Computed example of a mutant assay.
Amino acid sequence: IVGALEKEIREHGYYMMLYMAGSVEETVRLASSWNIEGLVALGCRAEDVQKMKEQLKMPVVFIDSYFENQDCYNVGLDDFGGGYMMTNYLIRQGHRRIAFLADQQEPAGVDRERLLGYQKALEENGIIFHERDYVPISFRKQTRHTRLWEFCQERLNEYTALFFASDFYASDAVFIFQSQGIRVPQDISVVGFDDNLFAEHCRPMLTTVQQHVADKAFYAFALLQRLIRGEECIEKNIHLPVKLVIRESVQPLEP
């Protein structure tokens, strides 16, 4: 998404400065010390959005951020719909024991929306969601691999399908499973979210939910340009559509 943003910004005669901020205060300090015309912020929590809105005196557009009752501009996905769509697909393939795996102990932002979509599909199909059906696996590689290995040894037989919050984590898990002699999809079905290179390069190739990252960059920068020019933007919270992409990583079960 950073590459797509840079392309949009450069093609419209602007220069992009990229900064990985550790806190809102750090972001505000940097944005205030440079003569920037506008800011694009990725993946912010609701409390961060509020702080930035209060402290920054420049146009700001958020990407993949979730907040309520705030007069802010955001471009994201129908993450809830994607989670709902994928879970319904798995259920139609005969799977009723489905786990959801993401990197945070308490999912937030896009992961939380995808989890809520998954839970809604379970509910509508008469499947009870238990707390243990959400499995935190960590963004730290060593911790994630340890948890996935333990999951293989202790809990894999509880499920017939695993829904990962991203293709990166799904493809990483497939590698771990295969190293333990667990076949995908014959022994366990695995799906992801994003439809990026990890989904295509994984073997088997992943069934996933497709998003178009370039569209996020296009709409975010278009909004920012209008705000910089002082134009009115009626649509403030844009949720781009998603699509199910079916490949090789799901094994249909006998009814």
Rank of each mutant, 00 (worst) to 15 (best):
S179N: 15
N69Q: 12
D133I: 01
K216H: 14
A217M: 08
L90Y: 09
A121I: 11
N88C: 05
P255W: 08
D194A: 05
C233V: 15
G181E: 13
G13W: 08
G22D: 14
Q119D: 00
Y19P: 04
A102V: 13
I246L: 10
G109L: 14
E254K: 14
V61M: 08
R226Y: 06
H145Q: 15
H201I: 10
G126R: 10
C72A: 13
A173N: 02
R92F: 07
L122P: 00
I1R: 01
T27W: 00
V184E: 05
L42D: 02
A199T: 04
R97P: 01
S189T: 05
G109E: 07
T207I: 09
M85V: 08
K216S: 01
L224R: 05
D78R: 15
P255C: 12
M20C: 06
E37W: 00
V174R: 01
K51R: 15
Y66E: 13
K53S: 12
I128M: 05
A165N: 12
F175G: 02
Y169P: 00
T143H: 07
Y14W: 14
N74T: 13
W34A: 12
S249Q: 07
D111R: 00
F163C: 07
F151G: 01
G83V: 07
I128Y: 05
Q70R: 12
I63C: 11
V135S: 00
L56P: 12
I137Y: 09
G109V: 05
Y118V: 05
A4R: 10
I98C: 02
E232Y: 06
L162T: 06
R114M: 04
A220K: 03
L5C: 14
V213W: 07
A108F: 13
I91T: 05
Q105H: 11
L148F: 10
R140T: 09
E232P: 00
H95L: 09
S179M: 08
V250A: 10
Y159L: 09
V75T: 08
L253D: 09
N69M: 07
P59Q: 11
F175W: 04
E47G: 08
Y73A: 02
V75Q: 03
F177E: 03
R229N: 13
I238H: 09
N35F: 00
F67M: 13
E154M: 05
Y219D: 02
Q153M: 12
I9W: 04
Y66F: 15
K216W: 04
R97D: 15
K53E: 12
Q178E: 14
N196Q: 11
W34G: 08
F100N: 03
A173R: 00
I137V: 15
E106N: 10
I127W: 11
H239F: 02
K216L: 15
